[in-house]
């Protein structure tokens, strides 16, 4: 079913396609990363590692998952630059928004209240 479809590029639309086998491989990696996330959460209910380290590891793992979805399932890797622009600029702005508000409001309950 999947194995005989060779990797090819559809330059007419400017996007890059992969073989079905490649997509199964990406899905497998996503499943493993998800298992690592949940495993880390469950294991650290015993407080084996510091909370900041757990949060950092979870953010790294979720970033890997998100990047894989965007690059390979959404085919942004290798696609036209304008698509990257209209997605990555708002994403950068959104990340800045989240981090800025976290800094502004952490420890300042009165501001948000």
């Amino acid at each position: 079913m999947a194995g005989h479809h060779e990797e090819h590029s559809s330059h007419a639309h400017g996007e890059h396609s992969h073989s079905d086998r490649f997509y199964w491989l990406v899905a497998g990696v996503l499943a493993v990363v998800t298992a690592l996330e949940v495993g880390l959460f469950i294991v650290n209910e015993q407080h084996l590692i510091a909370k900041w380290l757990e949060v950092t590891l979870l953010l790294i793992l979720s970033t890997i998952k998100g990047a894989a979805v965007v690059m390979f399932f959404m085919h942004l890797k290798g696609d036209a630059g304008i698509f990257k622009f209209v997605f990555l600029v708002p994403l950068a702005f959104a990340t800045t928004l989240l981090l800025s508000f976290m800094v502004l409001f952490s420890g300042h309950v009165g501001i948000a209240g």
Binding site: F93, A94, T95, L97, L98, F101, M102
Partner: peptide
């Protein structure tokens, strides 16, 4: 891109 900002706002509100 606009939806990214929309959900970022909701997530930010949750954390704030």
């Amino acid at each position: 891109g606009s939806e990214t900002l929309f959900f970022a706002t909701l997530i930010t509100t949750y954390f704030v």
